[in-house]
Design a protein around this nucleic acid. Structure first.
Lengths: 189, 189, 189, 189
DNA sequence: CATGAATGAGAGTTCATTCAT
DNA sequence: TATGAATGAACTCTCATTCAT
């Protein structure tokens, strides 16, 4: 009436849920960076040293895992905005933060595709994008304007989306950076 | 009293092959636009009204098909450069062509990913990119400079790659166009 | 001035265990009725508000749980035989009890499959079937015969098995009842 | 961009589609009889000496395969009705055919479950049941009545369903036959 | 004693690719 | 030369079962 497999790998069992969760997100981050967000689920579980079942327990949908990875780093990126604003003059802070954002995006192949896929599973992620990242950027934009810089009107989300696009391709970070600078220049034209 | 010679095309071999090839490229173009370059091979063969075997005969690698599709439209895009240059003042021609190029890219989901995948199969395509599109753009750039416009030094290929990135995402063509214009503005800053 | 003795149940161990056991059997009954005996073990544990481990402690084999559920209701069904015999004339009691048995079986999707699966785990259940249900039915049969009814010779177990089969299918209880009546009619032909 | 596995089992390739189809239905019949209609798809493919893909090509849904198996034998069973009617007196033909039908059902574990599962995929099969088997049975019933037999009014489909239920269980054909005879007796009571 | 996280076998399904016809 | 049937690797997901806490 059932399948009685005799287990033979005792390994970690129950070590610590929190730890596993971390390992999974970390592994996912690495794998996504290497192979994009469509990488086989199993490869992530393996990298985390965890059974697929465990992965599914914590992240029933692929999108849950993607969201977890991105959210974690989005937070760090958002925090950087305040730090840079505090340590640099507005215009400079703006540029520096966009480059920081660039780094965040650099390893997220497929992020924008996911965000715009229309799949409702990504709405929370998109929401996070709108409610956290975009405002952070918007603040920097306003601060620069308040400091007297002439900056073209631009939708913050749209601009960040564009920067993301420029950084997804495997064309290398140098090119990405040059092109992002061009975009920033366009902002000031 | 004699049998009238049957004049109906007995030498269709070649013609058929050509036709198949055309149908395939056309079908691939449509399917790529709809589902991206990772679409099932079969769906392309079906759309072309041809067996998969035939597809494989003409395009042993998926990349061959991708290249064929892109090459065909690249040609049209390259030709447009001359036409625009003849009909408009240099600066305007430059902008118009970039928008024209934008359209070409718009339906090519995955083009830049393919170009930068590192897969040697795409080298011919990348080569075509460098030897045809980039020079066409370069000419427009030079013409504008010659006409007195101040245009930042930029690697043509890199710039075109960036534009491509901006157009891939499913975020809609409006956003893409706005962002491309920003990039163009950056060029003149 | 002295600490008043804490009289609140400190000896709940046993009581808890009994309670869990009850909850499990009850939950299993409900789940089996809804999804058949192949329902996920976990869903039963959840329904009982208990961890899977606890379930496994009490019922190491799925068949143990199945047996427990069935046994409990078989008992009730067996008891009904005496009650009906006491309250009705023999022939009527016979018919009424078979319909009562029908109800018992109705929600036991998979019971007969389990009983006849050949899996040795079900032998105790089958034994219970033979030693309790079949005799109860046999008594009613004999009583009816003793009362002068002409009833075909039939193996009680076999007959009950047949009735069970007629009730398993999801075809609805109406049909089942009609067909069971036909079977009863056959008994008297 | 793709997975280039190097095939190593050349085996039959394209031998004959018709043959494969037959082999599949045959294998499915055997597997269904052994393990019920929920048996792993893969086991059927293996038994037929065919890749899973081939199975899926011919029978995209499990229900398609089930239907194919059943339909084939239903046809034979329906044909038997005429033959028996021609060779025997009505009452006898009726009994003989029901036993014949019994044989058909005997190896179809899960048939009635499938028929009554409510899954729309089985509607064609259920339809076949109603339009072919039930009428065949109905004719025999009428013929027997016309010949003067007293036969209880009964819904042909319902009756056949009941017979099916009696034959599904693994309880052995002897028991099934005895119980079916009882049901037939009930019909004449 | 109870819990539920972890495990991994196994089932379903898709699709690139080959090759008999 | 064209066809499309066949193949099977690879992927996703579920769930029985164990065992650290």
């Amino acid at each position: 009436m059932s399948t009685p497999p005799d287990t033979r790998a005792p390994r970690t069992r129950r070590a610590d849920a929190r730890q596993n969760l971390d390992a999974l997100v970390e592994a996912a981050k690495a794998v996504f960076a290497e192979s994009g967000v469509d990488a086989p689920i199993r490869s992530i579980a393996e990298r985390a040293g965890v059974g697929v079942g465990t992965l599914y327990r914590h992240f029933p949908q692929r999108s849950d895992l993607i969201s977890a990875v991105f959210r974690r780093e989005m937070d760090a990126c958002v925090d950087a905005a305040d730090e840079l604003a505090a340590a640099h003059p507005p215009g400079e802070a703006l540029d520096l933060w966009v480059l920081r954002y660039t780094e965040f995006v650099a390893t997220k192949r497929g992020l924008s595709a996911a965000l715009h896929s229309g799949d409702p599973a990504y709405e929370p992620l998109a929401g996070y994008f709108s409610t956290r990242l975009a405002p952070a950027f918007s603040n920097l934009l306003e601060a620069a304007r308040a400091a007297g810089e002439r900056i073209a009107p631009v939708d913050p989300e749209e601009f960040l989306g564009a920067v993301a696009d420029l950084c997804h391709s495997r064309a290398g970070t140098d090119r990405a950076e040059r092109m992002v600078r061009l975009l920033l220049a366009g902002l000031r034209a």
